[in-house]
Design a protein around this nucleic acid. Structure first.
Lengths: 194, 194
DNA sequence: GTTGCTCATAGACAGTGTCTACCAGGACGG
DNA sequence: CCGTCCTGGTAGACACTGTCTATGAGCAAC
């Protein structure tokens, strides 16, 4: 529980995060993490009964990182909710592009979950930020706020995923994802003011 | 080249498709496929130099299946493009839900691609159908057709993915994905007629 | 001092993808 | 008819994976 050497558990997660950021999702093997954390391959089991649990902890770190990035972005930008929503979306897309391996891991539900749904809880604060902004910009005859927020998130996520994969640029001939983002926001929230 | 016993290559792909449909993406190991196809574990190498190539062939089968399902649905429904677009979207979501393992595999670009982009070509016909319909329903002041189509696809894909994962229902409290789908189509194409 | 307990090590096991050596069997040329 | 290729499959090895189990070091408490 004390540290000074940072604790094996924390070192494992840190090594995993570092590894997935650097080498991608497929490199995050239990043994490699243990190696980089300087422990034996059996050590992680003490803290994470299975590989999935360790991966989940790493993905949680990713969600936390993304969430704070979003919050920071929103704080630093014009308080107009529509502007903030745009900034949130851009941050989401940038995160996916900059940390592709982590982003992949975060949504590889076949690798995570594992019964205990801690991960969903982890993604909720992020969604809450989005839902809050959506509630502010929603026009009276729009879809219910929760539906609107869900649709927006899905759209955002789809753009991030397909864009990172490279099939969206191929299919649409677009050279950046900003057009898609703008079109999406305009479609859901009405044309941007000014 | 002759058959009567269907050819090892075809048997491998068929076994792989069957396996991913039945047991999910993680079960599609090279050796298990070989086992089910009744050949040794080294045999696939003759036709697919690496595991990735075999997986790509399986995913291609998935894209082909989805494409024909979409085309069939469109043919069987009212010729109104908006109606057809809705049907296309529903088919996409239903496919993802019904064949989750295959759907996952189809978009696991880290497992596929492998330099030769055959897979992207494979997904193009499907996108072309969508793009064609979008071009028909597009209103003059909407985003360019290619952008609109890309945004719609991304949204569709995001819904399919997040829905299958279970985080969308959790976050939005929705009990089915139809509300999200309708909200999305309405947002991008204007409120549905009648 | 002996008993526990916490936590890490190390080895085994089955399974994986890839590589390599081998070989059955047919096609071909002489 | 015989030898030579070559195609297409087998079988074993290798390094690696995640999980399980037995072992042991170090320390707290009674």
């Amino acid at each position: 529980m004390s540290n000074g050497e940072a604790g094996v558990r924390a070192r494992l997660v840190a090594a995993g995060v570092d590894l997935v950021l650097r080498e991608g999702q497929s490199a995050v093997s239990l043994r490699e993490i243990a190696r980089r954390a300087g422990v034996s391959h059996g050590a992680p089991r003490r803290y994470f009964p299975t590989h999935v649990d360790l991966l989940s902890a790493i993905a949680r770190e990713g969600f936390a990182d993304l969430t704070t990035q979003v919050q920071k972005t929103i704080r630093d930008v014009d308080p107009d909710p529509r502007t903030q929503l745009t900034a949130l979306a851009r941050t989401y897309l940038d995160f996916a592009a900059a940390h592709r391996g982590m982003f992949e891991l975060m949504f590889r539900h076949d690798l995570l979950d594992s019964g205990r749904l801690r991960l969903r809880e982890t993604s909720l604060p992020l969604f809450a930020v989005l839902a809050d902004l959506v509630a502010q910009v929603r026009r009276p005859d729009d879809a219910p706020a929760s539906v609107l927020a869900g649709a927006l998130w899905a759209n955002l996520h789809g753009i991030a995923q397909l864009w990172a994969w490279g099939s969206l640029p191929l299919a649409t001939g677009a050279t950046d994802d900003d057009v898609l983002l703008r079109a999406t926001l305009d479609a859901h929230l009405g044309p941007a003011p000014h």
